[in-house]
Design a protein around this nucleic acid. Structure first.
Lengths: 204, 204
DNA sequence: ACCTGAACACCGTTCAAGT
DNA sequence: ACCTGAACACCGTTCAAGT
């Protein structure tokens, strides 16, 4: 190993755009937009009007479009460190060395939590999961990869029922997170549904 | 029993608005709008612009609003006979007298099918499930009621795992239907997810 | 009682004009 | 190279004027 921080040890980030440095004022605007979006996404959800975001950032709508040609691209930028946290969570859950069922349920809980970061986000994940090419799809592959780590471990322990595709589980959790959000009961509404999933995934 | 057809034997329809007859031209417009909506919902999904529907029906936008103050109300009208079909399906599934697992999976399949009638409908169901008062919520209670019939039967057979709330299953299927739709793979994408649900719901 | 269509507010997106 | 803001298209919603 060479350095200590921000090592690219894994393969889930190599496709980063690698854009060259922006002009000073452009960079400032870029940051202001992302920060404004972060706040508004949290307060009003991931469908907040782009105009409002631009206004709140103090830039013209055209500037926002220059930096983020699509809403997806903006969401992507707002969720910059998200991928790493998901990956870290997967490993953390495994390191806890819990029983198989508890390992699975706490992981699924984290999954929902990560997906539900912003109102409306679960639906975006559901859409992006099979929509190759969009920026959000990158996040989804990270999600699938992290999930695979956990499932591989469970499989090694012989805990999985035959014929369960981990990818289907992610897809299902996507839907569960969306349903829980729309229930208005907060994302604790997901817990009983995740319990059913766990029983369906684990060997009887 | 008195008559043979369209008996109101159950309680899932007594709260119908009971509106008095419309003037002839108004009734004609009402029908034209519902028919246009039915076609467009099928072709372009349940989020088709109301303006487009009005135009396709050959009426002004104001006329549409007079009859259907909200999009939900229009969807409700389009799905008029839907409730009865769901209820009938539940009974039909039970009459087939299949094994417990097959009973459950075919029922869940039907549920998804019913929810996925129009593009965007699963999301509406998810939202309406706990949103009392909206017209779509009526459909949801019908859904829950039909589902209860099947689950009661399974429970009587001792097939259910302890602690499973049928309502949570409906909520979950709502999410699954939405996720399957957004996957773009058609609603067969739901099948493997439903299999997991079945294993989670049935006693091991 | 019902219909029409103009009018308004709002949002996403583009682009010519500026620095 | 980057920003601004006017401009356009589109949609939901309302309402005064008509029959």
């Amino acid at each position: 190993m060479s350095a200590d921080t921000s090592i690219h040890e894994d393969t889930h980030e190599d496709l980063e755009p690698a854009r060259r440095p922006l002009r000073a004022d452009a960079q400032r605007n870029y940051d202001k937009i992302v920060e404004a979006a972060r706040v508004l996404f949290r307060e009003k959800g991931a469908d907040t009007s782009l105009d409002e975001i631009a206004k709140s950032a103090g830039v013209g709508p055209g500037t926002l479009y220059r930096h983020f040609p699509t809403r997806d691209a903006l969401i992507d930028a707002v969720m910059k460190d998200w991928v790493d946290r998901v990956h870290g969570d997967a490993e953390q859950v495994l390191e806890a060395e819990l029983g198989t069922r508890e390992t699975l349920t706490t992981w699924l809980d984290r999954l929902v939590e990560h997906m539900s970061r912003y109102q409306g986000a679960p639906a975006k994940f559901a859409s992006a999961l099979d929509d190759t090419g969009t920026p959000m799809h990158h996040k989804c592959t990270a999600l699938v990869a992290a999930n695979k780590i956990v499932f591989d471990s469970l499989d090694a322990r012989g805990a999985l029922r035959a014929g369960v595709d981990p990818r289907d589980v992610v897809r299902m959790v996507t839907g569960i997170a969306a349903a829980a959000e729309k229930s208005g009961l907060g994302h604790e509404a997901a817990t009983p549904m995740l319990a059913i999933v766990a029983d369906g995934v684990l060997r009887a």
